[in-house]
């Protein structure tokens, strides 16, 4: 997905990867930079990473997606599974539709940023699904195949 990010954001994620691998921490200056580049979604995305709510699903074909299990009971809304693609920016969440697609004032939503951060920090949960389940997930027909 990196080709869809501006150079400054790519560099920042590279720095985070490097520092996090060495110290398992994100120092204040990088946190500040993260907030500067991505705005309020930066802290929300880090929360998602902390809560381990990002799962990297893969199927035998090798196809991958990122999925977000929302703690619906906490938010009080309906339970949703958001699926983000591995190579380009798309998220079915309302923030992506509004801030990214409609108003064009954000680069991405907290979910896509969390997927980037999980990869950089090596903190994704991994799960395997069948190819058929992956197809249903990609098309939006199914959340997580059960």
């Amino acid at each position: 997905m990196t080709s869809y990010l501006p150079a400054v954001a790519e560099e920042l994620l590279r720095d985070i990867r490097k520092v996090y691998q060495e110290t398992t921490q994100i120092p204040d200056d990088l946190l500040l930079a993260l907030k500067f580049v991505f705005g309020p979604s930066a802290l929300q995305a880090l929360d998602l990473v902390d809560q381990r709510s990002v799962t990297c699903l893969s199927s035998p074909s090798g196809r991958k997606v990122f999925q977000f299990l929302l703690y619906a009971q906490v938010i009080g809304g309906s339970g949703h599974l958001y699926t983000c693609y591995a190579s380009c920016h798309y998220c079915p969440c309302p923030a992506f539709a509004f801030s990214v697609l409609r108003r064009n004032d954000s680069l991405l939503c907290k979910h896509i940023l969390a997927a980037y951060l999980c990869q950089a920090m090596g903190l994704s949960q991994h799960e395997t699904v069948t190819d058929q389940q992956m197809s249903d997930i990609l098309s939006g027909k199914a959340g997580r195949g059960t």
Partner: peptide, 20 residues
Amino acid sequence: GEDQSAAAHVAALLADTAAF
């Protein structure tokens, strides 16, 4: 907004599939 989101879904799936 819904139409825009649906358009993004179709386009992103095509792009992600091509990348894969």
